[in-house]
Each structure stands twice: as structure tokens, then as C-alpha cells.
Nucleic acid binder design. Structure first.
Length: 562
RNA sequence: GCGCCCGUAGCUCAGUUGGAUCAGAGCACCGGCCUUCUAAGCCGGGGGUCCCAGGUUCGAGUCCUGGCGGGCGCGCCA
């Protein structure tokens, strides 16, 4: 829960040095991590930023700050002026070890930070129509939404995971008619799936399941209207259950499934229409009722009530989003597929018109292409032919599928490479990270220690045996800031990149022992206890990083016989 | 035609909030090492006009403008 205490020390020492050098009140020098390790552990460009204001050459200013900074207070071993006026800092090894102690003490909470202020955040994702199984695109939304939610929790916010169920409206009617057609067919009566209806094989399965559960005589005894209503209701219920089951197997647990139908029943839609009427935000034209979204940034006004009297999708959806504000959420994050991108402007505009300008944040995720043997696996929703999320999880496992969905930014088209996903070597980034974690656990078993009982702090060693060891230690310390940054920018892929890098450093460190047995973690040398503690710190870091993304961190992994 | 997203190594992509110490990773390829602290590795190497052209700046892969190329969306469907 601590953030980075070592960085805070350096930051304070640097600030007071700048202040003594004549920096204006309230100036806080920036610190960043240089890409090039020869530039030290931390660097500041503050002298360049201030040079003009203070009327001094950047290098001279930097040199002055160099003299003024107190190395002991800052926890640094060296500071130097570089290039046009950068300050490069090298942390002292003695200041790093106590921070590893903090990592071990934090244990399962290592990586969590406190948010100020903590916000109530609603993350809405998947929200698939209950008209069929979830497919791979839903999987990407599920992985991303759940990971963003989790990262926000790790960053100290209060999060609700929510699925909006479109259990009303035209698509549900079509589903009911499609199921009815399959039911009639099975009874030997001629019937056809309606125009725009659902043709997938699962529709037949659903129809049969309902018939068998209710008893064929019972359904046959109902009046046609009643039977259709029942088939529709039962189909929605079954498909919702199936979706929830698929999500659960994928490791996603929703806090709330919010029913669209409930908005009609609670009167929320009527109240919204009244409020819109009173506010003069709607008008009638060509027999329809329109919302003045173009007054608030949309390209054109949008229909809420069609000329046949039925509602568009937009009306209940708007009522739903207003309800999120009513329930007290500070932020509502919606995860939408690229095909819904056109709705973003109208929803933001409508909420602006209804005095909720800052509520909604929309994350648009681009499409997913599944590749097998380097070729695209073609999908067709109309023909009901697609890769379902369930099939994907069966084939790759939940961890692999989730990781592959998360490792790219949401804005880029995703190529899901099934061949790489099924590779169990370190070439597969998921296994690379999980293996590194399992290796550390193996070291504990070999040493006969229980991971949770590794003492956080014995005496602090003077330094690190090798540069590889030092790099691992510094990498470990970055977890909280990486998670907080990923949460802030709603970008789980930043955590993936970090974990892969950390795993690479761990592997390099570990494999040194193969070349030189004295470098093994468990070598009988004085450094052994310190190395076990570093192994524990890195194991916690990998595990908590994986968990913050919603993945597991196995302690043992069996490899398939080759 | 309009809107959103993308364009960086052979391939897949990172590059954090408006820059500096930014030409990067993984895979593939080539060369060397290891056969283990179980978990298919480790080290090194080649390879790039960061789509193009302007602009802002002391400084642009990053910001602005205009092009070009690709994806998606533009219903009183959801």
C-alpha cells in the first residue's frame, strides 16, 4: 500500500535542492526512468525546463543542483550532469534492500495503491444481447472490462462490474420467433425462421431444451400467443445462463446483470420522457419523437420513439445511463465494440443535455481476427458460424485467452494467433511469465521454505552480487506505479509489457546459476538468504501483477510430454 | 462523402498523461553457451526514410495542419 517510498525521498531532496538554487515556489522537478541504463536509475530534465525562467544555462543550473543535493537524504550513490543539462541519479544499493522488505511485508497487497480520492466506478462490459452464445469479440470486451475493473480496484477505487441485458425490444421478438420456428419444425409443421432472425444451430438446441423441460404436451396445449411468449422468455433465460456460465469459466464474475426490461417496469423510461419534455429537449417530426442531441455535439438529432410508437434502443439505454448517475457512480466506463462506435457521440451528447457531462467514458475496442496456421478463421454471424468464447477457452485455457486479449492496446485490431496461444514454451508470453513465477516457487520448495514465511528483513546486504540481481530488484519496485498508470489510462497492456520484461530479467538472473553454480539462488554462500528474499519479492510481484489482470499464478506447472 | 481507430525491423506490436537520455521488445534468422535451482532456456549479431509533406519548438515516433494507405461505422436495427 506504500507506493514508492524511495522515490519520494529522492523527489523531496531534489525539490529542496532546486529550491535552494532559486527555483520558484511550488516548482516540482520531474523524475523519469531513463531508457538507457547507463543514464542511471532516475533522471530529471528540470534544469532544462527552468533554464529560461532563471536566465541560466541549463548545464550550469544542473551543476549547481548537483552540489546542493544531499546524497544520503536522497538515497543515491551518484548524481551527474549529462547531455544538455539532464541530472542522472544512481540509487544506492543500500537504499534498495529496505524497499524489498516492504514488498515482502505487503505480501498479497503488494502493488495496491491508495487513490485520492477513491472513486465509485461502474464498468459496464460485454452487455451482449441474450440471443446467442458469446463469441471471441465478446471475449476481448470481457477480458478488457474485467481487467480495467480489477486494475481500478488495485489502484484504490470502488468498482462495480455490470452487464446490461437487452432483454426487451425487437431482437428479443426475433429470437422468440426463431425459436418458435424450430419448435414447429421439430413437430413436423412447416415453419421458417423470420427475416432477420437467428439461424444458428443453437436456436434448435434451445427450442428442444425448452420443449423437453416443459413437457411436449404442455407446450402443445398452450394457445399460440402464449406459447410464443413462453418460448421467448425461456430462450432468453437459457441463453443468459449460458452466457454467464461462459463468462464464469473465463474468470469473469459480474456484480450485476441489469435488465433493460426492468427500466420499462420501474417507470424509469416514462420519467425520462417527462423530464425530456419539460426540459424542451425533444420534439416531434415525421411522426417520430426526436432528441436534440445536435445541440450538444452530435451530428444530427436522434429518434427516441419511432413513428410506429415503439422505442429505439437509444431510449432505454439513455435511461440506463442516467440510472448509473442516480446510483451514485462518479464514473461510468463502457466497453463497446468497434461496431458501436457511432453511438458514442450521441450518448455523450444526450448526457451533456441531461446535466451529466462527465459521467461517461467509452472504451472502444477494435476487432479480433482469429488466426490458425497463419490463416484467418472466418466467421459469419448470420449463418451462425463463429468461434464462441466457450470454444476458445476450451482450446487455450482461460489464462491464455485472457492474456492474449489484454496484451494489445484496445485501439488496435487484434490478431489472435491460435498457434502461439497453444505453444507451451516461453515463446508464449503467458507461459513466460507464469514459468518465471513457478520457478521462484520451485526454489522455495527446494530450499524447504514456505513462501509466505520468507522473513522480510534480516540484515541488509551492502549491495547486489551481480547487475542482473540489481535489475530484478529495481524492476520489482515498479509494480505499484505500473498498475496505477494502467488503471489511470485504462490500459491493461501496460501491465502485460511490464510482466514480460520482469519475467525476462528473472530468467536471466536465474539462468546465471546454470553457468556458474556459485550464482545459484540456493548456493551455499553468505548471500543465500538475501537471494531467497529477492526471489520472494519477485515471485510476489509476478503473482500480484497476474492477479491484477485477472490471471492465475500457478506454483507448479506440468509441461506436456513432448 | 462524413465520423472513429490504426500506419514504427521480414512478422506481431511497445514506446505512459503535449517533446529531450528514443530507434525498442518478442517472434523469425545467424553465431556462441547451458542440459540445470524441474518447467524448452541464456548471451551476442544483422536488420528501420518511425507512411508522406509542411508547421510549432532549443528538441517531434510523440503535438498541429494537409495528404496517402488500411480497418470499422454512418437506419425510425441492436
Amino acid at each position: 500500500m506504500t507506493g514508492d517510498a524511495g522515490l519520494a525521498r529522492l523527489s523531496e531532496a531534489l525539490e529542496s535542492a532546486f529550491s535552494a538554487a532559486g527555483a520558484p515556489e511550488g516548482f516540482s522537478p520531474g523524475l523519469e526512468r531513463p531508457r538507457d541504463p547507463t543514464h542511471g536509475d532516475w533522471a530529471s530534465n528540470a534544469a532544462l525546463v527552468l533554464a529560461k525562467r532563471l536566465g541560466q544555462p541549463p548545464r550550469a543550473l544542473a551543476a549547481r543542483v548537483c552540489e546542493l543535493i544531499d546524497p544520503a537524504a536522497a538515497g543515491i550513490a551518484a548524481v551527474e550532469v549529462a547531455g544538455p543539462g539532464f541530472l542522472n541519479f544512481r540509487l544506492s544499493d543500500r537504499s534498495i534492500w529496505p524497499r524489498l522488505t516492504e514488498v515482502i511485508e505487503a505480501g498479497p497487497d503488494w502493488g495496491r495503491t491508495r487513490a485520492s480520492p477513491p472513486l465509485r466506478v461502474n464498468v459496464e462490459f460485454v452487455s451482449a444481447n441474450p440471443t446467442g452464445p458469446l463469441h471471441v469479440a465478446h471475449g476481448r470486451g470481457a477480458a478488457l472490462g474485467d481487467a480495467v475493473a480489477s486494475l481500478l480496484e488495485w489502484a484504490g477505487h470502488d468498482v462495480t462490474r455490470e452487464f446490461y441485458v437487452n432483454d426487451a425490444g425487437r431482437q428479443i421478438e426475433l429470437l422468440g420467433e426463431s425459436v418458435e420456428a424450430r419448435y414447429e419444425e421439430a413437430a413436423g409443421r412447416p415453419a421458417a425462421v423470420p427475416e432477420g432472425g437467428y439461424h444458428g444451430e443453437y436456436v434448435r438446441d434451445v427450442a428442444m431444451a425448452i420443449r423437453d423441460a416443459a413437457g411436449p404436451e404442455f407446450l402443445a396445449s398452450l394457445a399460440p400467443e402464449e406459447r410464443r411468449a413462453r418460448l421467448r422468455r425461456e430462450a432468453v433465460r437459457l441463453l443468459r445462463e449460458e452466457q454467464a456460465e461462459d463468462l464464469s469459466r473465463f474468470g469473469v464474475e459480474m456484480d450485476l446483470f441489469y435488465s433493460e426490461r426492468s427500466l420499462y417496469e420501474s417507470g424509469a423510461i416514462d420519467r425520462l420522457l417527462e423530464a425530456l419534455e419539460d426540459g424542451g429537449l425533444i420534439y416531434r417530426s415525421e411522426g417520430a419523437t426526436w432528441l436534440r442531441t445536435s445541440d450538444y455535439g452530435d451530428e444530427k438529432d436522434r429518434v427516441l420513439i419511432k413513428s410506429d410508437g415503439s422505442f429505439t434502443y437509444f431510449l432505454p439505454d439513455l435511461a440506463y445511463h442516467l440510472d448509473k448517475a442516480r446510483r451514485g457512480f462518479d464514473i461510468a466506463i463502457d466497453v463497446w465494440g468497434a461496431d458501436h462506435q457511432g453511438h458514442e457521440k450521441r450518448m455523450l451528447a444526450a448526457l451533456r443535455g441531461l446535466s451529466c457531462p462527465d459521467l461517461l467514458e467509452v472504451l472502444i475496442i477494435q476487432l479480433v481476427t482469429v488466426l490458425r496456421d497463419g490463416r484467418e478463421v472466418r466467421m459469419s454471424k448470420r449463418a451462425g458460424r463463429f468461434v464462441t468464447l466457450g470454444e476458445l477457452v476450451d482450446e487455450t485455457g482461460a489464462d491464455v485467452a485472457r492474456y492474449f486479449f489484454l496484451m494489445r492496446r484496445a485501439e488496435v485490431h487484434l490478431n489472435f494467433d491460435l498457434d502461439l496461444a497453444l505453444d507451451t514454451s516461453d515463446a508464449n508470453p503467458v507461459y513466460k511469465v507464469q514459468y518465471a513465477h513457478a520457478r521462484m516457487c520451485s526454489v522455495f520448495r527446494r530450499a524447504g521454505v514456505v513462501a509466505g514465511e520468507v522473513p522480510p528483513s534480516l540484515e541488509v546486504p551492502d549491495g547486489f552480487g551481480t547487475p542482473a540481481e540489481r535489475e530484478v530488484a529495481l524492476s520489482v519496485l515498479r509494480l505499484p506505479e505500473v498498475i496505477a498508470a494502467a488503471a489511470g489510462s485504462r490500459a491493461p497492456h501496460l501491465v502485460c509489457a511490464y510482466l514480460e520484461e520482469a519475467a525476462g530479467l528473472v530468467n536471466a538472473w536465474y539462468h546465471q546459476g546454470n553457468l556458474d553454480p556459485a550464482q545459484r539462488i540456493l548456493a551455499e554462500v553468505p548471500e543465500r538468504a538475501a537471494r531467497i528474499r529477492l526471489a520472494r519479492a519477485v515471485q510476489l510481484t509476478l503473482r500480484n501483477g497476474l492477479r491484477a489482470l485477472g490471471l492465475s499464478a500457478p506454483e507448479t506447472m506440468t509441461r506436456d510430454a513432448k
